[in-house]
Structure formats: structure tokens, C-alpha cells
């Protein structure tokens, strides 16, 4: 998948899960401070991505240890798919 395709899938999932507006989901947005996504939310998010999107994902929790922004998350997903 291309980065744009991953971004579209991820954005769609986040809009379903997190009471966000699409305009908030930008690459520089901090997951915790701007988007109010905490560590428990991240687990639910990754599970949703696996179950509900075409993104084929095989991951370990450590892969996301340094993820702080939406852009960081995209980078990791791009690397893992």
C-alpha cells in the first residue's frame, strides 16, 4: 500500500474511534496532546486497523514505542506493511 492509502485507511478508522474532526488529523498532530489518543486507545486502534482495513499488519507493541505524532504512526505503518 502507498503512504496515501495507509493514511486514508488510518484516518477513516480514527474518525470512527476517537470523536475527532478530519481537520485535526494531520501529520504533525500529537496523538496524546492534540488527538487525545492514549496508550489503551492505541491498542484498540491497532486492533481495528488489523481487523477492519486492508492494511496487512504484523506488529509488536515495541514497534510503536517512539510514536508521538500521527506522522510517526504513518511512518511505522508504512514500514511494517
Amino acid at each position: 500500500m502507498t503512504r496515501d492509502e495507509i493514511k486514508a485507511a488510518l484516518t477513516a478508522v480514527m474518525l470512527t474511534l476517537f470523536e475527532l474532526e478530519e481537520t485535526q488529523i494531520i501529520e504533525s498532530a500529537s496523538l496524546y496532546d492534540d488527538l487525545d489518543v492514549d496508550s489503551i486507545d492505541m491498542l484498540d486502534l491497532l486492533l481495528s486497523i488489523k481487523q477492519e482495513t486492508a492494511v496487512e499488519l504484523d506488529f509488536e507493541p515495541e514497534d510503536f514505542r517512539d510514536v508521538r505524532t500521527f506522522g510517526d504512526l504513518l511512518d511505522v505503518l508504512e514500514r511494517l506493511t
Binding site: 470512527t16 474511534l17 476517537f18 470523536e19 489503551i40 486507545d41 484498540d44 486502534l45 481495528s48
Partner: peptide, 8 residues
């Protein structure tokens, strides 16, 4: 609903 919405 999704769990994340339930938490909130």
C-alpha cells in the same frame, strides 16, 4: 459501540 467511544 467501539470500546474507545465507550471509554469517553
Amino acid at each position: 459501540q467501539p470500546r474507545t467511544l465507550q471509554y469517553r
